[in-house]
Measured scan of single mutants.
Amino acid sequence: KELVLVLYDYQEKSPRELTVKKGDILTLLNSTNKDWWKIEVNGRQGFVPAAYLKKL
């Protein structure tokens, strides 16, 4: 499993997105899109802007 660090808080703006908090370490599911990465948070899957995340 690949992990990502959340660099900035992000509030979901659609049902396909997820809310994340700065400092969270989460599972990366897909990073093929350069702008939006798919991650998992508490069993939910969704997208967060790639600029808000850093691969560990």
Score class of each variant (00 low, 15 high):
49 P>K: 04
47 F>C: 06
27 T>D: 07
5 L>M: 13
37 W>G: 01
52 Y>S: 08
31 S>W: 09
55 K>R: 14
10 Y>R: 02
48 V>F: 02
15 P>A: 08
36 W>G: 03
6 V>L: 01
22 K>M: 08
3 L>P: 04
39 I>A: 10
39 I>N: 02
51 A>I: 15
7 L>E: 03
38 K>F: 15
19 T>P: 03
9 D>F: 05
49 P>Y: 02
24 D>Q: 13
50 A>Q: 07
29 L>R: 05
15 P>I: 07
3 L>Y: 10
42 N>Q: 13
5 L>E: 14
24 D>W: 10
13 K>R: 13
10 Y>S: 01
35 D>S: 12
37 W>K: 01
28 L>V: 08
44 R>Y: 10
12 E>N: 10
55 K>P: 13
8 Y>R: 12
7 L>T: 06
33 N>F: 08
42 N>T: 06
6 V>H: 00
35 D>C: 07
9 D>E: 05
15 P>R: 03
3 L>W: 13
33 N>M: 09
20 V>Y: 04
15 P>H: 13
24 D>S: 15
33 N>V: 05
47 F>V: 07
53 L>P: 00
16 R>F: 12
47 F>L: 14
30 N>K: 07
18 L>K: 04
36 W>H: 04
25 I>W: 03
50 A>W: 02
20 V>I: 10
11 Q>S: 11
24 D>H: 07
37 W>Y: 06
52 Y>G: 08
49 P>G: 02
15 P>K: 09
14 S>K: 09
21 K>V: 08
25 I>T: 07
30 N>A: 10
29 L>S: 03
25 I>C: 05
46 G>R: 03
39 I>C: 09
11 Q>P: 04
29 L>T: 06
36 W>M: 08
20 V>E: 00
12 E>R: 15
44 R>D: 06
56 L>Y: 09
11 Q>R: 10
9 D>W: 02
46 G>T: 03
53 L>Y: 01
52 Y>Q: 04
28 L>Q: 01
1 K>F: 14
42 N>C: 08
50 A>T: 08
26 L>Y: 13
30 N>L: 09
4 V>G: 02
26 L>C: 07
29 L>D: 02
32 T>M: 13
54 K>G: 06
44 R>L: 12
29 L>F: 04
7 L>M: 14
42 N>R: 09
20 V>R: 00
26 L>S: 09
26 L>A: 15
18 L>I: 11
21 K>C: 07
9 D>K: 03
53 L>R: 00
27 T>Y: 14
29 L>C: 06
21 K>N: 10
47 F>M: 08
5 L>R: 07
23 G>P: 01
21 K>D: 04
42 N>L: 10
19 T>I: 04
51 A>F: 15
35 D>R: 14
33 N>H: 15
2 E>A: 13
55 K>G: 04
46 G>W: 04
27 T>S: 11
45 Q>C: 08
35 D>K: 14
30 N>W: 07
24 D>N: 09
2 E>W: 09
45 Q>R: 12
25 I>R: 05
28 L>I: 06
49 P>F: 02
51 A>E: 13
28 L>H: 01
33 N>Q: 11
3 L>N: 09
25 I>K: 05
38 K>S: 10
55 K>I: 14
13 K>D: 08
3 L>E: 09
56 L>M: 10
45 Q>P: 12
37 W>D: 00
40 E>Y: 05
50 A>K: 08
6 V>S: 02
